[in-house]
Write a protein that binds this DNA or RNA. Structure first.
Lengths: 118, 118
DNA sequence: TTGCACTAGTTGGCTTTACAAACTAGTGCA
DNA sequence: TGCACTAGTTTGTAAAGCCAACTAGTGCAA
C-alpha cells in the first residue's frame, strides 16, 4: 500500500510546513520540494512550490535572494522573517488544536463501532 | 486566547470529519454544524455544510432523506453508504499519516531551535 | 395579527489553494 | 549536437470553503 497524504489534505498546511523547513535552514524551491517528499507529504509539484513561495514573500513571511550555483542555474534561497517565525508558531498551535479535535472525533467514532459490534 | 482552527486548515479534512459524524449517527445539516462547533473546529457556516453534503451525496458517500420535524421546517437526514464507510477508513489512515509527518517536522524544527539556543 | 427569533435548506458568485503544462535557461556529459 | 538534470516563471483550471441573499416553517411576545 502506497502510504501518502492526498493532496487535498495538505490544503492550508503546506505554508506552515514550508515555514518550519525554512526556519530550520534556508533553502531554495527545488531543494524544498525534495525535502518535503522525504517526509512522505505527497509529491508536491513545482507548480505548487514556486507560486506558494512567491505568495509567502508577498505576505512578508519569507525573503528570497538569488545566488549563483556551482553547477546549474541560479538558485533563489528563502529565509524566514520575524513575521514568518510568528506565523510558524501560530501554525503549530492551530495544528495541535486541529489534531486534538480530529483525534477525539475518530476515537468517539471507533468507540461507537465497538458498541455496535458487542 | 480564542483557540480555534483556521478555516484554511480544514480544507480537505471536512469531508472526513462529516463522514465520521454521520457514521456515528445519521444527522441533518443544521445538527451537524452544531456538532462540529462543539469540537472547536471553527464555526463552519451553512454555506459550507449544505453544499458539501450535496457533493458527498453525488459522490455516493452518503444518502439523504427528507423527514418532517415536530417543530420547524423539514429536515434532510443523511446516513453513510458502504462507499462512505470505506472513504471514512481511508480518511483516517491518511489523517494519521499526515499527523505523523507534520509532527515529525515540528519536532525537528524545535530540536533545531534548542541547538541554536544552547 | 404582526413581527421577531429560531430553525432548516438552497443557490450564485467569490477567494484561496493546489496543480498541470508549457516555457526559459544553465551545466555537463555522451 | 543532443540529452539529462537542475532551477525558476507563468497561464489557466479545478476544487474547497464561504458570504450573502433568498425561501420557508414554527412559536412566542408585543
Amino acid at each position: 500500500m502506497k502510504s501518502n497524504t492526498s493532496s487535498q489534505m495538505l490544503k492550508g498546511i503546506l505554508q506552515g510546513v514550508m515555514l518550519i523547513i525554512l526556519e530550520k535552514k534556508p533553502d531554495y524551491g527545488y531543494g524544498i520540494s525534495k525535502q518535503i517528499n522525504q517526509y512522505g507529504l505527497s509529491d508536491i509539484p513545482k507548480g505548487t512550490i514556486y507560486p506558494l513561495l512567491t505568495t509567502m514573500e508577498k505576505r512578508g513571511l519569507i525573503e528570497g535572494k538569488m545566488k549563483p550555483s556551482l553547477a546549474g542555474p541560479d538558485r533563489k534561497y528563502y529565509f524566514t522573517t520575524v513575521a514568518g517565525i510568528q506565523a510558524k508558531k501560530d501554525f503549530i498551535n492551530e495544528w495541535h488544536f486541529l489534531e486534538g479535535a480530529v483525534n477525539q472525533l475518530i476515537d468517539e467514532g471507533e468507540n461507537n463501532e465497538n458498541k455496535r459490534n458487542d
